[in-house]
């Protein structure tokens, strides 16, 4: 695991942007090497002493993070050209990727930048609202247990439910761009998740109708990058195929029965 020789200094090339519409620019920072560093701890060190390699006083890098345990989904960024969570991006592994070179940090490219490495992922949350991402229970009163389910059913739902809305799948997806209307893998996963619940299924027709709109499931080009970059191993491609099957059946039914 541990490479024989470690540098004394780790160099970070960071893409910065001062405001939403500002021009991005690069800055290089140096951090003394220690074992077991991750990208977050380096950004913390830079925040304490934001001086560039050229010796110029700068400002702390702005980035989004919360749990640092790869369950909240906040700290996604593009590291060495690839999207991932910065909390679980271990410097020792990144150094192996870049050899003697610099570790680059960039904001995600598929979402509008707020500042530096912080992007606005509201589009993902809006989609959850649009697709009725909830189980329509009767209320919080004591109405007994929920529906029983088999361990197999639970397993698929659990795997889908681990999606933390981090946006990795969308960043890596060639079909999803900053300005098109493609919905993207995470929402497909959520639609299948809610359709798999016995009560959640009540809203299935509405979800599928929405899924058939422009930007919906039919636009998926099956590059399958989503499942490759997903940090939580959410079975996104299974979800996509299931969503395909559900919309196929739904559209045929609708063709013969008309709109409800």
């Amino acid at each position: 695991m541990i490479a024989p020789k470690k540098p004394e200094i780790i160099t970070f090339r960071i893409k910065r942007q001062d405001a939403r519409d500002a021009q991005p620019y690069w800055e290089v920072f140096e951090v003394p090497y220690k074992p077991n560093l991750n990208v977050i701890s380096c950004l913390q060190l830079i925040a304490e002493n934001p001086v560039t390699r050229e010796g110029r006083q700068s400002r702390p890098v702005v980035w989004d993070c919360s749990c640092l345990e790869e369950v909240c989904g906040a700290c996604t960024m593009v590291i060495n050209g690839r999207v991932r969570q910065s909390c679980s991006a271990l410097v020792d592994q990144l150094l192996e990727e870049v050899g003697e070179g610099e570790i680059t940090l960039e904001p995600m490219t598929k979402f509008p930048v707020v500042r530096d490495l912080w992007v606005d992922r509201q589009r993902m949350f809006d989609n959850l609202l649009r697709f009725k991402g909830w189980v329509p229970i009767d209320g919080t009163h004591d109405l007994g247990e929920g529906p029983k389910e088999s361990p197999e059913e639970q397993e698929l739902r659990y795997e889908l439910s681990r999606c933390m809305t981090c946006g990795c799948c969308l960043e890596a997806c060639p079909q999803f761009t900053l300005d098109n209307d493609f919905i993207g893998a995470n929402t497909f996963g959520q639609v299948v998740y809610f359709n798999a619940h016995k009560t959640g299924r009540v809203l299935m027709n509405e979800r599928l109708d929405a899924l058939m709109e422009p930007g919906g499931i039919a636009d998926c080009g099956n590059a399958q990058n989503c499942v490759k970059v997903c940090p939580k191993d959410v079975p996104l491609t299974i979800a996509i195929a299931k969503a395909g099957r559900q919309t196929t059946v739904h559209s045929i039914k609708r063709f013969f029965t008309g709109k409800r």
């Binding site: 590059a223 990058n225 970059v229």
Partner: peptide, 13 residues
């Protein structure tokens, strides 16, 4: 679409 095989070199991509 926005092609990205440079950074995501997967067969599917």
């Amino acid at each position: 679409a926005k092609y990205n095989t440079r950074h995501y070199r997967y067969g599917g991509n």
